[in-house]
Design a protein around this nucleic acid. Structure first.
Lengths: 228, 228
DNA sequence: TGTGATCCTGACGCCTTCTTGACGACTTGC
DNA sequence: GCAAGTCGTCAAGAAGGCGTCAGGATCACA
């Protein structure tokens, strides 16, 4: 019994290039193809591919936006392929969540090698948990929903990001700086006041007794911890 | 409390390039530099860097060999930097265990962005468990928790740092000055009174009979020692 | 342009933590 | 035995971190 070939989502609006990519990949991978950003996002949801090969120049959405949307719910490696070779483009894509950036023209061999690297990285990851529970609270990373005792809880974007960061380090202490960096971006370091305000809001929404939190724990002088 | 900057091992035999890389990295990272393959391997063992920036053209060893040797014992990301731009070189390096491949000349911004990607990947890897035990006390450095007979013990930041410093030299005597430097930072040297107060607090929390400590041992005139 | 949600910011009081000092016990060298 | 230095203990005041609340700015969207 052999493993099924990994599935690659190929996103490019130009048919000839898609054909080239398909030919390059076909010996080692199964492929799904999208010609627009919207299609890419929808197919990604549908097929949950092992990796995404993404051309930045799409007719409908900005490529960076696609990267961001994908990253918000999947850790699958994203290899960007682009005619734009400007350094600023590369930096924006890589910092936006892409895992590699290839400038056209490139060789088929290099593409395959970089794809192997990306898949090698992904294989080392622990299976991403999509649902996390503590107390009567349930967080679904895939659908971006939070429920308490079955009832949906509305969280603002910042509240949600903060909670996700804590979930991703469940049980561990997460330092003030890491939380700030993850939620407010670099440059917010030192603004621990944000954390105080937002942790209070999370507690009000998720803790039975927000004055005596059982899961969203303060580690004085260090950070916060989500106790499962 | 801020996290320490990641440590990058920079390997290149040409001094001007090393200088360029050093200048590029210095705002965000600490660096260690090697000029030969042998030196690189030795320094990697010694410092266990968070990432390696490796030029393939080394005087003694083949760059690929260095990649292979590093990969045999560490998962730290390796970003190859090379004047050789041939596709076969890239493929060989990437398949040999490198995580990225930059062809000279490249921009400082792109290098930094790709390094961030590499470190981002490394950060997602499951951390090695770091647990230390003595008596009925258990210290989990990864989770930053201390338990006694299963019950969590609350330590203040200074108490915890002090304990960690002792744990890191378990069994050995740690001098007053080293403890003070690690916990209170440089400039606290000579303030041994701090140690007296905080050791007392640690003993009260962790020793069965704090008047007759069995693990947190005083070495008169020298320092303290953690007896496992 | 208006409306509502979200975010930022400041003020305040509480509480933990840190620092500092005083004092007695103990050890060491004279 | 005495003096000097080190160590442990206790406690009180200072400093800073934390939670809370609310007003106002900002943003998204219609």
């Amino acid at each position: 019994m052999t493993e099924p070939m990994p599935l690659i989502l190929v996103v490019d609006d130009e048919l000839p290039i898609r054909r080239f990519l398909r030919a390059t990949l076909q010996d080692d991978y199964r492929t799904v193809e999208a010609g627009t950003g919207a299609e890419a996002l929808s197919l990604a949801r549908q097929y949950n591919p092992d990796a995404v090969l993404l051309d930045l120049g799409l007719p409908d959405l900005d490529g960076l936006e696609v990267v961001g949307k994908l990253r918000s719910w999947t850790q699958a490696p994203i290899v960007v392929v682009s005619a734009r070779g400007r350094e600023a483009d590369k930096i924006a894509a890589l910092d936006g969540g892409a895992d590699d950036y290839l400038t056209k023209p490139f060789g088929a061999g290099e593409l395959l090698a970089r794809l192997r690297v990306a898949l090698r990285h992904a294989a080392r990851l622990p299976d991403a948990q999509e649902v996390f529970e503590f107390g009567d609270t349930r967080i679904d990373l895939l659908f971006r929903t939070v429920t308490r005792a079955g009832e949906p809880v509305h969280l603002t974007p910042h509240e949600y990001k903060l909670l996700v960061t804590l979930v991703q380090h469940a049980g561990k202490v997460v330092t003030h700086n890491l939380l700030l960096k993850q939620v407010w971006g670099p440059g917010a370091s030192g603004q621990t006041h944000y954390l105080r305000v937002y942790m209070a809001q999370l507690r009000a929404k998720l803790e039975v007794d927000s004055a005596r939190p059982r899961h969203l724990i303060t580690e004085p002088g260090v950070g916060y911890r989500l106790r499962p």
